[in-house]
Design a protein around this nucleic acid. Structure first.
Lengths: 334, 334
DNA sequence: TTGTATGCGTTATCAT
DNA sequence: ATGATAACGCATACAA
């Protein structure tokens, strides 16, 4: 790697002159600038990023801690984060907690030594179950800003970007009832123990209660054979006329099982699930989804965090990114 | 952030004594070590990573450049990379090229200024189509090691980790012919223009030729309505008794379309696709897949790159990670 | 217009 | 056993 010192020596001028020339300082003569820039270009000089970071005491890097990246929701959030960060001239260091408290904690500790200017994170499943968050508070106390998205800890005061979990499911349930005249809506879930799962189920329960219907919830979080469970549930109760899945997988399974049971979709049975960019491609008929704007969630998170990094006075915010009901072929259009 | 200097001042000793004490140097008295360590713990001192990087001239960070992360293959590779890197005490900076040459090039340039000790990358679709790779060669020339996985540029000399694309598809085709007695195998693809796509198709063609059968290839790369195209193809030719998809999506579509056409799977029609961890969950019957060991590919890549970083003399290698045919319910067991 | 000196936080070498 | 000094590469306040 070429350094300022090398350029200076080759040109027989001082390091600071070279530095100023490269930064186009008005103190430097055009002639010198030209000479410096030519040599720099020739030797492919690039200012050493590490040295700059040490000097300016900022890394222009964000720490991103995700529970997993094989879940398409988080994959798409990551895409949004990466795109916006690149836009704003930030790098991202990515850590995966694998849904464990241990790795989440370790990553936070390891990176809060000046490696990053701030964190964007969604809390690991285990951390949520154990309701443990001291490791996160500790980072904030050490004055490294943290932004939480999707899965958040209410007790911690920090910027947050969340989905309208309650409302979107409430609305979808209302849609099935009011627009499609469904009476027996089965809610299917494999994430009932997560904060977002609870909110979504509440949205469903509220809509069901508001319409004086009977709640019907199938929790699959700890079940081995999900397909079989869904199949049996549908088989046992032929009066079920709609399935509302609150995750990105059980909705598709419900469609497949319903077809195996010879139920017509959407005539006999409507199916709505949660989904992302290409979810609908994977089912026939194409599944209707509550589309979480995952990309946008990621982008918003970066924007909010970087804004707070720049501002000296910052008001903590919680931004709600509304979801959108995207009708496919697995439910009737109104 | 607490620094050595602050500790030194509080303890009325010199910076270098503090540094040595914290590094458990034998030159320092036990008593001093104790005092220093206690204060350091109390103030939550952590050595500034950036300063260490500048000093040692290594970042312990790898640049990871992926075409996309919403494709489950790359998501799982990323998981493998992250896990192994954490293991070996490396961080990863992740960039997404979005399949474009522009972003790939930009990321490479931006990070080859001392930000990372080496790169792990899969070439963007656009770079492959345009057969442009000077930006990669240029990084290597500047003495920053690059490792390519999956989608590689043959002309560039560097470490590589690849899948047995040709062989795995050859074997799967043979399996359909020999074990299941299939005669009219339709190959379905939406990645025929990529290096890996070409290799996979060659594997198929070879097996077909070796068995004196008729080749039947459906290329969907630029098609709008994939479902319709697959449906029509199956409808038009009832003699098709097997589908071999070389990507992770068209196999599932083929199953759905075949069911719509009332073909029995696997009695009338076998389906084999490419897949990853949870692919089989998304179809009924569960799809048989050529399972690319994506996680392992990521882990191997990190190991190979880090090894080369440590060695002063390094022999370039190309490692082939064999795939595994995992039978689901969409093909007959032998 | 150019050059000198200083400091970012750490570590290593060389005194004391 | 402890401390002073230099160095990593860069940027900037200050001198010349």
């Amino acid at each position: 790697m070429t350094t300022l010192k090398e350029l200076a020596k080759l040109l027989n001028i001082s390091v600071s002159t070279v530095s100023k020339a490269l930064n186009d300082s008005h103190e430097i003569s055009e002639n010198t600038k030209r000479r410096v820039n030519e040599l720099a270009a020739k030797l492919n000089y690039k200012p050493n990023r590490i040295a700059q970071q040490l000097k300016t005491n900022q890394t222009k890097t964000l720490g991103v801690i995700l529970p997993t990246v094989t879940n398409p929701f988080f994959a798409e959030v990551l895409h949004g984060i990466e795109t916006k960060a690149t836009d704003l001239d930030y790098d991202i260091i990515v850590c995966l907690s694998d849904e464990t408290l241990l790795k989440e904690r370790r990553s936070l500790e390891l990176l809060s030594n000046g490696s990053v200017d701030g964190f964007i994170m969604a809390v690991a499943r285990e951390s949520q179950l154990e309701e443990y968050s001291e490791h996160i508070q500790s980072v904030i106390d050490s004055r490294v800003p943290v932004l939480m998205f999707d899965r958040v800890v209410n007790e911690i005061e920090c910027d947050k970007v969340v989905v309208d979990d309650f409302q979107s499911v409430y609305d979808a349930t209302e849609y099935l009832i009011k627009q499609e005249g469904r009476k027996n809506i089965l809610l299917v879930s494999n994430i009932e123990e997560l904060s977002v799962g609870k909110l979504r189920i509440s949205g469903y329960e509220k809509a069901i209660a508001d319409n004086a219907l009977k709640s019907n919830v199938l929790k699959l979080g700890s079940i081995e054979n999900v397909e079989e469970a869904v199949y049996k549930c549908l088989e046992d109760d032929p009066s079920i006329d709609a399935v509302l899945s609150i995750d990105h997988i059980t909705g598709i399974i419900a469609i497949n099982m319903a077809k195996n049971l010879k139920r017509s979709i959407p005539e006999d049975l409507s199916v709505i699930g949660f989904g992302y960019e290409h979810t609908h491609l994977l089912s026939s008929p194409k599944i209707s989804i509550i589309h979480q704007k995952a990309h946008e969630i990621g982008a918003m998170s970066v924007k909010l965090l970087v804004d707070s990094l720049k501002a000296e006075e910052h008001q903590l915010q919680t931004i709600v990114v509304p979801s959108e009901l995207k009708l496919g072929e697995s439910s009737k259009s109104s």
